[in-house]
């Protein structure tokens, strides 16, 4: 098992190198640091001296890949590629372009609020989706089932932005249940969390119920379900003990893959509700055209996604012993 995990980790290394090269190419070859400086300083009426100073302050005045002016190792290490790209591998994200803040510190500060929304959202969504899907499958073949599927398609067709705007308007402005946006420390934050979590759950019902329904139906067609019925088990027990438990394997492995990415938060939700998490951090960076932060988030996002894939593979082998460690 350990050898298997080590091998999977080794597979991840070239992919991370690929991501690193891709972001380096995107951020430094498509546009030169000079272009970025001009964008930040305002394209018109900017002197070359101001551009040079902007680059020097942020360390973009080095050569891209090879520094011929230095000697020894410094020829390789005193470059943008080493300083700005390779350092991402040790999670040294450097300083932000627009306001000179330590990106690593900001990211650590903002993980908490993101998780505070994402984890309750994931758990509540899973509970609601699974119970509704189980209910629909219980009435399979009836008009209730048909109309539930139609309703799911209708819910999927509604833009996610609509759920947020309508939910904010209804719960925050008309009914005045909770504040529209904001965030607090400790238990105070609950009143800020409830609305985004509830809206996230409602927005996800359509796709969640539909996909879980197909998982359940797939298990219902299996031989062991027929055997269970033949033994004389009642429908409730068949559903809970045989169908639900077996369908949980694909459902939970689908959850495992997104677990690490929960740190990143949701860009749209966080900006709508003013939650100081990583999602709104990214949005602010995009608005301020802060390339260093976006670069850091792209890399961090890939690392977390690859970690999710790794955990999925491992949980598969744990959940289903038939899968060989090939």
């Amino acid at each position: 098992m350990i050898a298997y995990i080590l091998r999977r980790v080794a597979y991840a290394v070239p992919i991370l190198i690929g991501v690193n090269l891709l972001t380096f190419w995107l951020f430094f070859f498509v546009n030169s640091p000079d272009d970025m400086a001009r964008m930040q300083l305002g394209t018109k009426h900017v002197t070359q001296a101001a551009v040079e100073q902007w680059k020097r302050e942020r360390g973009y005045d080095r050569p891209l890949l090879w520094n011929g002016g230095e000697t020894g190792w410094r020829r390789f290490t005193d470059t943008i590629f080493y300083e700005k790209s390779l350092r991402l591998f040790v999670f040294d994200f450097g300083i932000s372009d627009s306001d000179n803040r330590d990106i690593g510190y900001d990211i650590r500060q903002r993980m908490g609020p993101s998780l505070a929304i994402q984890i309750p959202g994931l758990l509540a969504g899973l509970a609601v989706d699974l119970s509704l899907a189980l209910l629909v499958v219980f009435f399979r073949g009836t008009y209730l089932d048909v109309w539930a599927v139609v309703l799911c398609v209708v819910l999927i067709s509604i833009s996610g932005l609509f759920y947020i705007i309508a939910g904010q308007f209804l719960a925050g402005k008309l009914l005045r249940w909770v504040p529209i946006s904001g965030f607090g420390a400790g238990w105070v934050s609950i009143k800020f969390i409830i609305l985004p979590v509830a809206i996230g759950v409602i927005a996800g019902i359509g796709s969640g119920v539909r996909i879980n329904r197909t998982f359940f139906l797939e298990e219902l067609g299996r031989d062991f379900v027929r055997t269970a019925r033949a033994k004389g088990l009642d429908e409730r027990r068949v559903m809970i003990r045989h169908v639900l438990r077996n369908a949980l394997i694909p459902i939970l492995t689908g959850v495992v893959v997104v677990l690490p990415s929960l740190f990143l938060g949701c860009l749209v939700t966080e900006s709508f509700f003013g939650i100081p998490g990583l999602g709104s951090y990214t949005i602010n960076a995009i608005a301020a055209q802060d390339f260093a932060i976006v670069r850091a988030m792209v890399f961090l996002g890939s690392v977390l996604y690859i970690l999710g894939l790794l955990l999925t593979d491992i949980s598969y082998t744990l959940a289903d012993p038939r899968i060989r460690l090939g």
Binding site: I15, V19, L22, T23, M297, V298, G301, S302, I306, L309
Partner: peptide, 9 residues
């Protein structure tokens, strides 16, 4: 490699 970068980012 392309797939491992989150789409929005």
């Amino acid at each position: 490699t392309l797939n491992s970068v989150p789409g929005v980012l």
